[in-house]
């Protein structure tokens, strides 16, 4: 699509990404530093919370169109 001046290392898709795949990576991956403010939840709770988010999203997707060009 658009080509920038410098060749990008990779063109990451930031739109057509399933939330479930994103949650796998953002809640369990990434660089971890122990800051003062932490999500006060264990891994198990994170799984439950992400599942709740997913179910809500899937329900919403059943109502609205999933993909939008906007």
């Amino acid at each position: 699509m658009t080509t920038g001046p410098a060749a990008p290392p990779a063109l990451y898709d930031n739109r057509n990404v399933a939330l479930v795949d994103l949650l796998d990576r953002l809640l369990a991956g990434g660089v971890v530093i122990a800051g003062e403010i932490t999500l006060g939840i264990a891994d198990v709770d994170l799984v439950r919370i992400s599942l709740r988010a997913l179910v809500a999203t899937i329900r919403a997707a059943g109502i609205e169109a999933w993909e939008e060009d906007g």
Binding site: P8, P9, Y12, L27, G29, G30, V31, T38
Partner: peptide, 16 residues
Amino acid sequence: GRTHRVLPMRFATLCQ
């Protein structure tokens, strides 16, 4: 990531 070699932080990494 379009312009940099990027190392993402864990979601909600917050400091004072």
